[in-house]
Nucleic acid binder design. Structure first.
Length: 468
RNA sequence: GGCGGGGUAGCCAAGUGGUAAGGUCGCGGUCUGCAAAACCGCUAUUCGCGGGUUCGAUUCCCGCCCCCGCCUCCA
């Protein structure tokens, strides 16, 4: 198995810390719960889901942690504006997040530590204390504690940045007079009036943790000093992950992460989907348009994680059609099995290309290409009545195996509504009497109710469209 | 300005030093009363542009162009 490691900028053979036990520790940066996450955020989480599921398919025992950032400027501002306690403000967004990942069939992480958990606050304070004692951090005149990047020679290595070349984007306001170096980042932010009643006591006074330290504290607390894989969006490479390395290694003295994997952005109209640009869609936005969770999952999954993915409605339609093709294929395989078709002519058996494609830095496009090739070949055999039941069973087993990674099968059998059943019954009668106009009219009415009619040798078949 | 990612058909996209997977859309055909689904065929003499290496380059090298992102709290 090979992955592109952001640190080396090279494809590397994957070797976990504990190859014998096949244990893999993964840390993924989770949402900041100040508003509902948008589908660009979920592209990253789906990529991480694919990673976890493929590792598991290959026999690894994955332990994944995803943090919840429930204290930062935005959450505090939101709570202030709503005039409610911070926890009350973030709770519905946490809940919405869990609903959304369930809709998208994203496997839950083993742990979702929250930044405001006193246990982790304590750990952050402890780490900051250690960094200060080693000269890697200092308390400035503004009472905040900053990381001293000049004392950490590797700072900038992940992003390949030359620190003397850093330019301010003006996105974040700097308290330049308080910091020794413009690049020094906050570990502990001193309380100010805008924080209201949000704050924790520390050896440096009342305040709250900086964003980066929370991940270092939770990652090392739950996964140990060294973790196998750390993921996130490319926009987290700098400064967030760079800072995590500095803080963690500054405390433990050990290499923090073996493999850094970063996901490219979801674009809309060729631009990064983001809250600040206002060009974003949430999951409920797409569900309202009639798309289902698995259709959205497919649409967000089908492009390689390191390539930008442009979100379009055309892409959503493509996802729907592609899934219908898979559904149809599965239904046909099951039919062959049910009919116990026995034919010696075509004994086809599954191959390994799907898994091998994913071994290659999660090449999902190649993997799906192989799936669809397989679908065409087996459909062709079924058209000729040349696929026997054992072969169909073998392909179905194969699907069950790869679907552990894809998780794209329709969830529940949708019951035929009585109304549609009656229309179908009427249509059957009309067809027996060769009343074609009536038959076609009934087909339209059934179609208007979201069901598709097909006339086969065995009579009418009804399939729901756009199913979850 | 620095550092990345990307540029392959209408759209999405894989890929290799030896002549371009797959999905979707469109067109034609088989099947069908007509459809649908499925299958078959057609749809890139060509892979952003210009050089170079090579018997041969979309792939390797050099230069350039375009798009997107990051450059101190964005997945």
């Amino acid at each position: 198995m090979r992955f592109f490691n952001t640190y080396s900028r090279e494809i590397e053979e994957f070797q976990p810390r504990d190859p014998a036990e096949r244990k893999v520790g993964i840390y993924t940066c989770g949402p900041t719960v100040y508003s509902r996450a948008h589908i660009g955020n979920f592209r990253a989480y789906i990529f991480e889901d694919l990673l976890q599921r493929h590792l598991e398919l290959r026999g690894y025992n994955v332990h994944r942690v995803m943090n919840m950032t429930d204290v930062d400027d935005k959450t505090i501002r939101g709570a202030c504006e709503a005039n409610i306690p911070l926890a009350e403000f973030t709770a519905p967004f946490k809940q919405a997040f869990f609903e959304d990942i369930e809709t998208l069939r994203i496997k839950r992480a083993d742990e979702f530590p929250a930044a405001t958990d006193q246990h982790y606050i304590d750990r952050m304070i402890e780490m900051i204390g250690t960094l200060i004692s080693r000269g890697l951090a200092y308390q400035a005149d503004d009472k905040s504690v900053y990381f001293r990047i000049n004392k950490f020679p590797d700072y900038g290595k992940l992003a390949h940045f030359d620190l003397t070349q850093l330019q301010s984007t003006g996105r974040v306001k700097h308290d330049e007079y308080d910091k020794e170096h413009i690049g020094d980042f906050a570990l502990w932010k001193a309380w100010d009036e805008e924080d209201g009643d949000v704050g924790w006591e520390s050896p440096w006074g009342r305040g709250r943790p900086g964003w980066h330290i929370e991940c270092s504290a939770m990652a090392t607390a739950l996964l140990g000093d060294q973790i196998d894989i750390h993921c996130g969006g490319v926009d987290n490479i700098f400064p967030h992950h760079e800072a995590e390395i500095a803080q963690s290694e500054g405390v433990t003295g050990k290499k923090f992460v073996r493999y850094w994997l970063h996901c490219a952005h979801l674009l809309v109209d060729g631009q990064k989907m983001s809250k600040s640009l206002g060009n974003f869609y949430t999951l409920p936005n797409l569900l309202e348009k009639g798309y289902t969770g698995r259709e959205i999952r497919y649409a967000l999954m089908r492009v390689h994680y390191r390539a930008p993915l442009n979100f379009t409605w055309e892409g959503m339609e493509e996802a729907r059609q592609a899934l219908a093709r898979i559904d149809e294929w599965l239904a046909r395989l099951r039919e062959v099995i049910a009919k116990k078709i026995d034919n010696e002519k075509n004994k086809t058996r599954p191959r390994e290309q799907f898994e091998e494609a994913l071994d290659d830095d999660l090449n999902i496009s190649a993997a799906l290409g192989f799936l669809f090739e397989t679908i065409r070949e087996t459909n062709r055999a079924m058209d000729r009545n040349e696929l026997d039941a054992p072969s169909a069973e073998a392909w179905l087993d194969w699907w069950k195996r790869i679907n552990k990674v894809l998780d794209l099968e329709t969830e529940n059998e949708i019951l035929l509504p009585a109304e549609v059943a009656q229309l179908a019954k009427d249509r059957e009668k009309a067809r027996r009497e060769k009343k074609w106009n009536q038959s076609d009219e009934l087909r339209d009415r059934i179609s208007a109710r979201g069901w598709e009619v097909r006339d086969t040798k065995d009579g009418q078949k009804l399939t729901p469209r756009g199913t979850s």
